[in-house]
Amino acid sequence: MGSFSIWHWLIVLLIFVLVFGTKKLTNIGKDLGGAVKGFKDGIKEGTSSTDAPAVPPQQVTATKVNDPNTVDVDAKTKS
């Protein structure tokens, strides 16, 4: 009752081809494949960066420079 046969899926595919055309379906397939590939590459890059040793952050020197573009501000929390 809840399962579709192959004929149902072929009719649905035929309607999709008639509505969207083969060129749009091809473009959608290429876009979807590119998105999946980009996702996989992103996952690989994310896991490979954890295997590499962490580089310590650079230390900032405490020299005061009188730069006219620098604004000195004190951040306060609102209570």
Rank of each mutant, 00 (worst) to 15 (best):
K40E: 11
S48A: 10
T61P: 05
Q58K: 10
K30H: 03
E45L: 15
V12C: 06
W7A: 00
A75E: 08
G42Y: 11
G38C: 11
G34Q: 06
L18H: 04
G33R: 02
I11S: 13
N27E: 12
L32Q: 03
G38R: 11
D67I: 09
K30N: 09
P68E: 11
D72P: 00
P56V: 07
A62M: 02
P56W: 05
L18F: 05
S5Q: 03
D67N: 15
T61V: 01
S49T: 08
D74S: 12
A54T: 15
A52T: 08
V55D: 10
L32C: 03
S3E: 12
F16P: 00
K64W: 13
F16N: 09
P57L: 10
F20Q: 07
T61A: 11
Q59Y: 03
L10Q: 06
I11R: 14
G38Y: 13
H8L: 01
T47L: 15
F39E: 07
E45F: 13
A35M: 11
K37L: 14
V65R: 08
G21L: 09
V73T: 08
H8R: 07
D72T: 08
D41Y: 09
N66W: 08
V36D: 03
K78S: 12
L10T: 01
L25S: 02
V71D: 02
G34R: 03
S5E: 11
G29V: 01
W7Y: 06
T77D: 06
I28P: 00
A52P: 00
H8E: 13
V19W: 09
S49I: 11
K30Y: 07
